[in-house]
């Protein structure tokens, strides 16, 4: 992210403001959704979806990942892969324990 001229940056600033608006709306939405009468599975799903959208907005626009170099994207993909390995660890343990009981 270098070598921008002023107009380029100004269009960025407009994007930042739009992202800010979207994040604020999504925050209100996620709080609102938590009062819905749904099963806990559904509410976890909704909350995680909204959080992922918000997270992607921050990562893509504030952290400029949308226009980042291949090297960094690849490192992050590798990290995300191992992050999911970590996340599946408790799930695996839980489902596995259920089968032996």
């Amino acid at each position: 992210m270098s070598g921008h001229d002023n107009t380029d940056i100004q269009s960025h600033v407009r994007t930042y403001m739009m992202v800010f608006g979207a994040l604020a709306i999504l925050t209100v939405l996620t709080v609102g959704a938590s009062y819905l009468e749904v099963t806990s599975g559904e509410s976890i799903f909704i909350a995680l979806i909204i959080a992922s959208v918000k997270g992607s907005l921050v990562a893509s626009y504030f952290m400029h990942l949308i226009s980042e170099r291949a090297m960094i994207i690849n490192i992050l993909l590798l990290t995300i892969a191992f992050f999911f390995v970590l996340m599946f660890l408790p799930l695996m343990t839980a489902t596995d324990a259920a089968t032996i009981l």
């Binding site: 959080a51 918000k54 921050v58």
Partner: peptide, 28 residues
């Protein structure tokens, strides 16, 4: 300017962590 960008990347990450902490701790 590079240094501020780097500090910014860190700061946005801290924000990003909170975006996930908020629903899993407070809402679920």
């Amino acid at each position: 300017a590079n240094r501020i960008e780097i500090a910014g990347l860190y700061w946005h990450f801290v924000d990003l962590v909170w975006i996930f902490l908020f629903p899993i701790l407070y809402l679920l």
